[in-house]
Structures are given as structure tokens and as C-alpha cells.
Amino acid sequence: MDKDETTDNNGDPNAGELICTNSSNVQADHNGNPWSTGLFDCHEHKTNALMTVCFPYVTFGQISEVLDAGEMTCPLGSYIYLLMMSALCTQWLMGSKYRSKLRRKYNLVEAPYSDVISHIFCPYCALCQEFRELKNRGLDPSLGWNGILAEQRGTRYADQQMKIPPPYQAMKK
């Protein structure tokens, strides 16, 4: 008998062991990379946490603009989310859709809860986590898609030496 096995008084090696089985109906996707921050780590970016509590539709708009590579603008995404908030609290539909999109893009694990559950019961935490994930990957949603592109171009051009034109130029006939 291995020293890791435990037995009860009757000699049953599985006694005292918790046996967990996975139901085929309820399976979380535990394959993939971990998130850079946890679902409840809102304190890691206080400005975004406060913004999300007051204006969750703006945070969603920023996230959707980045994930859609500028095809959906922040104002349009915010407006759709706001409409869904007032329409029987159905904003979780859009939130979970974009959370799934983010997970697929970066091969992230669907944890600690499914995308739908995260956006039904913890919508602010889910939005903050998605915002932080994009920011930690170098895509700051608060800049917007065009701001991210400009920042990336600026970084690329900063490495090149700038040629200064001659100080005096004139045109002659």
C-alpha cells in the first residue's frame, strides 16, 4: 500500500476520500491559459472599477471597440449595452458574448464561472476583469482602438531616427 492511500478501520483504501465526478451536462472549460487577474481583483485598477460601477455601459463600449478592432465604436457599444440594461436587464447577453470572444482570442480558461454566470451575477467584476486583461496585454481599452493603433505606431517610429530638415529653405525661379 502506498503511503498516500488512507484506509478506514475496515481496510477500505478509499475511505475518507472525496470522489468528484463531472456531469456531462455541467462542464466548465478548464483548458486554456489563466487570466492575468482574478474575477474579484477590481482593486488592481481602481479608476476602472469606479468607472464601471458608475457607468458599466462605457466600460463595455471600450471593451467591445477593442475586441472588434474598431468596427464597433465605444459610443455604439455603450448605447447597445445601455438599451439592454433598461430592457429587462438583458445586458448579460452582450457581456457574456464579448467575454467569450476575449477568451477565444487569448485562449483563456472559462473560470471561475461560465461567461454567462459571470455576467449575470457579477457583471461589474466581469467587465473590470476583461478591461484589465486587455490592458495587461498592451491594449488599453480607455484609449480606444484608434488610440491603441496610434500608440503602437508611435512605439514603432520612436525606434527610428528622425531626420531633421535643413533650417533654411527657399524656392527660387
Rank of each mutant, 00 (worst) to 15 (best):
W92E: 07
C20H: 10
V116M: 14
V116G: 02
D8F: 03
M72E: 04
Q62R: 05
H119K: 00
Y79S: 15
M51K: 13
S118T: 12
R153I: 11
T47W: 04
P167D: 09
T37D: 14
R137T: 04
M1K: 13
M72K: 10
S96C: 14
L127Y: 00
Q91F: 05
S78H: 03
T6E: 07
H119E: 08
N136I: 01
L67E: 03
L50C: 05
V58A: 01
E151V: 09
P34H: 09
N146G: 05
S64C: 06
T7E: 13
P167F: 05
T37S: 14
M72S: 06
R104W: 08
T7A: 09
A15K: 03
T6N: 09
Q169Y: 10
S100H: 07
D29V: 11
C128F: 00
K101W: 01
P165T: 08
Y79H: 10
K173T: 08
K46G: 03
S142A: 15
L108D: 05
S114C: 08
L82T: 07
Q62S: 01
M51G: 02
L134P: 05
V116T: 12
H30P: 02
K173I: 11
Q160Y: 13
R153Q: 11
S96G: 05
L127C: 00
R99Y: 06
K135Y: 07
C89Q: 14
C89T: 10
P167M: 06
C128A: 06
Q27A: 13
L139C: 07
I63Q: 00
N22Q: 15
G144F: 06
D68W: 04
D29W: 06
K101T: 10
H119M: 08
I148T: 03
N146Y: 09
